[in-house]
Structures are given as structure tokens and as C-alpha cells.
Amino acid sequence: MNKDASTPVLRFDKVSVAFDDAVALQDVSFEVSHGGSRIILGAAGSGKTTLLKASLGLVRPQSGRVFLFGHDISRMREEELFGLRSQVGMLFQESALFDSLTVAENVAYPLLNQRAIQCPADQVLPKVKEALRFVELEQTLEKFPSELSGGMRRRAAIARAIVTEPPLLLYDSPTAGLDPITATTIIALIVKERDLASTTTLMVTHRYQDGHLLANYHYSPANGGLQPARGVNEPVPGRTKFLVLEEGRLVFEGSQSELEASTDPYVAKFVKRTG
């Protein structure tokens, strides 16, 4: 469904979203091309989650247009969207695993229910196991989400998001509410997925160090961990950008060095927090 390599994977064109009288997004425009990463920072209630949901058509803009793989999804009917959504994986803030299903059933859900994905029945279990192995959770196949810790739930949800090998992945606060060690493990998984499957990544976070890891580190298959990208494989300039949202408006878009140099007091707040 990718029109061609030069078409941005995702493009927002002056998108505004409001719920009742509250403005969630106002005139937001940006684009991300294949293989690029966007780290979205902002205070609580600044519209970060709405931005991710609008990318999938879960929330419709009142004005402006959203292009997903070159298709204008702002006016598409829900049924038409299902095909496009099968190419996007999303990690929700609180994991949003179906709590009446086991971990294996949760991960198998997109394979069995995405109509655009024709997964042969005998391929479902191997793919589920592979996705769970990727997040190092093979031993939890038959467990229910309520039996897992917060970090494990987040990993199972990542497995569910990547099992269909989507070219675009959206992560909503993947480290929220996790201890620093687990948080780093989750970011390492996101970097690993980005580097091994060369996916386009949008990550909402309120932790600057998450963005720092995503922008400056690479997954190293040799030691199975993260390695600083400098000198090894310098990221293409512009591949990773930071966006900062303030009360629904996009107040900053640029590289990490531009972000660190910003004199805007609101933008600077997100940089300083790392210490």
C-alpha cells in the first residue's frame, strides 16, 4: 500500500482535534518518512495521545488532513481504515491487552482479526512465539495479562503490536509508570525493533532520556544490547526528530541538538529534566 518510497509514511496537514469544547490538537503539521523516528514530548494533556490516535484514525480531526501511507484518512469510513491500520502497530499507554484473553491469544489477535492479513492457521502459533521471543516472554504464553507485572504487560503489548510486522509503529508513553531499569529494557526493545525491521517509529514520552536513547543508540546484534550510534553507524541527519506539544500546539520540531539549544522556557523544561 506504500505508494512509493518518497511518500511520507505519515503526514499531518494543519490537523485540529477538539473534544466537546476542549481543544486537543490545534493546527498540527509534520511528516515522517520511511525509516524515520519522531519523539513527541509534552506535558500531560498536551495532546500527545490524541496525536497518535489521530494517526490511526481512532480520533477524527475537525479540520486538516491526516495522510497515512499517502492516503487521506481524515474522511475515510471505519471499514476502509481497517486495511491501512493493519500496517500500523500501536502500543497503548496502559498496554490495553484484552484481559479476558491469554497472552498468546492477545498476540495472535491481530493475525486472526486483521482482514488484510491472511495468516495461514498453522503459521499463527509460530509467529506468536517469535514475537514473544523477541520481547523475551516466551514462557508466558498461557498466562493472563492480570498475572503479569507492569513491565511484562508492556512487553506483551509490544509483541502484539509487532507480530504483523507493520512498517509503522506508534508507542504511547511506553515507559510510563515503570522503574528505570524496566523502562530502559522497553526502550531497548523499541530500538531493536526499529533497527532490525527498519520500521518508522513515533514515540510519545514525557521522559527525555527515552528520546535520547532512541536518537543516539543502535541495537547491536553482537551483544544483544544497545550501543552508542556515534562512530558505529551515524544516524542519517533528520532521521530522528523531536516534537514538543504545548496545549495542542506543535511548538518545536527539530533535532536533539536544536532541542537542547532551544531558549523557549517550555521546551527547555523537557531537556533539563534529565539532569
Binding site: K53, L56, L58, E78, E79, F82, R85, S86, V88, M90, F92, Q93, E94, A96, L97, F98, D99, Y109, P110, N113, Q114, R115, A116, I117, R160
Partner: peptide, 16 residues
Amino acid sequence: MKVTEQIDAMRALGTD
């Protein structure tokens, strides 16, 4: 399901 975003997840995963 609604408040834990499972309904949104369902829509994102291709189910009405």
C-alpha cells in the same frame, strides 16, 4: 474496556 483503551486497541487491531 473503554477506560483501559481496550476498545481503541480493538479498533486499531482491525475489529469493529
